[in-house]
C-alpha cells in the first residue's frame, strides 16, 4: 500500500521549506554553538524531505527525481503549511529583508515540532512501509528539535523583559497559522482512507497540551485562534513562498540539465 503522492509531497514540502528557512541562519546565529544547532536542525529537515521526495518520485515515475520535485515545482504545487514559509521577522512587508528574529524562528520551530512528534509517532504505523520507516527515523530527529526549540521558548519567555516581549510577539503572530493543521485537505483525507495517513484532528488535544504547558512554563499568553485558516497545504500560499522558491531554485532553473 502506498501513500497518495500529494500526501508525501505535503510532508516533504513542510520539511524542505522549514529546512530552507532554518538554513538562512547559517553564519547569523546569536552564538557559534546556536549557529551549529540551527544548521543541524536544517540538515535533519532537508534529509527528511529528501527521503519523502525520493519515495514520491518513485511512485510518480516519468523521470521524476527528488531534485525535480524540489526545484521544478512552482508555488501552487507546494503543499507545505503556510507556517513553514513565513519570514523570520514578524509584521514585515513581503519584500522587506528584515533582520532575523531568533524568537520568531524558535517559536515557529516549536509549534511545528510539537505537531510533528505526534505525526511521525503515528505514521510509524502507516500501511505505507516506506513512509513508516521514514517516520521512525524522523521521530528521533524531531524530538530533539522540540527539545531545543521548547527550551528556547522558555528561556526567552522567562528571560528579560525584552526577550519576553519578542517571543510573545512571535507566538501572537504565528499561533493563528497553526489552525491549518486540523483542517482536512483532500490528500490527507485520501491518505487516512487507505490507511497510510492519520487523522490530524485527533492530534489536536495532545498538541494543545504540549503547547499550553510550554507557554505556561515560559510565562507566555496564548493568543486567541482568530478566524483565519491558512491554506498552504492545499497550494494556496502567503506572498512569502515565491521569494523562498526564487532563491532556492534559481541555480537549478538557470541550468536545468546540469548534474551536481
Amino acid at each position: 500500500m502506498n501513500a497518495p503522492i500529494d500526501y508525501l509531497l505535503h510532508l516533504a514540502d513542510n520539511a524542505l521549506i522549514l529546512g530552507q528557512r532554518n538554513a538562512e541562519w547559517c553564519g547569523h546565529g546569536p552564538i557559534l554553538e546556536e549557529d551549529i544547532a540551527l544548521s543541524n536542525n536544517s540538515l535533519d529537515l532537508v534529509g527528511q524531505a529528501r527521503m519523502l521526495y525520493q519515495h514520491a518520485a518513485e511512485l510518480q515515475g516519468g523521470g521524476a527525481t527528488e531534485d525535480t520535485l524540489a526545484y521544478f515545482r512552482d508555488v501552487p504545487d507546494f503543499k507545505n503549511y503556510t507556517l513553514c514559509e513565513l519570514p523570520h521577522m514578524p509584521l514585515m512587508s513581503a519584500t522587506a529583508q528584515g533582520d532575523r528574529d531568533f524568537a520568531m524562528t524558535m517559536a515557529r520551530n516549536f509549534l511545528y515540532s510539537s505537531l510533528m512528534v505526534l505525526v511521525w509517532d503515528q505514521l510509524q504505523n502507516s500501511k505505507d512501509a516506506q513512509l513508516a520507516a521514514i517516520a521512525a527515523k524522523s521521530l528521533k530527529e524531531v524530538r530533539y528539535h522540540l527539545r531545543h526549540s521548547r527550551d528556547w521558548l522558555v528561556r526567552l519567555g522567562d528571560g528579560t523583559d525584552e526577550s519576553h516581549a519578542k517571543v510573545q510577539a512571535a507566538v501572537d503572530q504565528l499561533l493563528p497559522y497553526t489552525q491549518e493543521f486540523w483542517a482536512n485537505s483532500p490528500h490527507e483525507a485520501a491518505a487516512l482512507a487507505n490507511g497510510t495517513g492519520i487523522d490530524m484532528a485527533a492530534l489536536q488535544n495532545d498538541w494543545n497540551q504540549i503547547v499550553n504547558e510550554a507557554l505556561q512554563e515560559a510565562t507566555l499568553q496564548r493568543p486567541a485562534d482568530g478566524g483565519f485558516v491558512p491554506t498552504g497545504k492545499q497550494g494556496i500560499h502567503s506572498e512569502h513562498l515565491g521569494f523562498v522558491l526564487a532563491e532556492m531554485q534559481s541555480l537549478a532553473r538557470a541550468h536545468p540539465q546540469a548534474t551536481w
Partner: peptide, 9 residues
Amino acid sequence: HALQMARDV
C-alpha cells in the same frame, strides 16, 4: 544548554 550544544558540536 551546554549539553545540547555539546551533542550538536
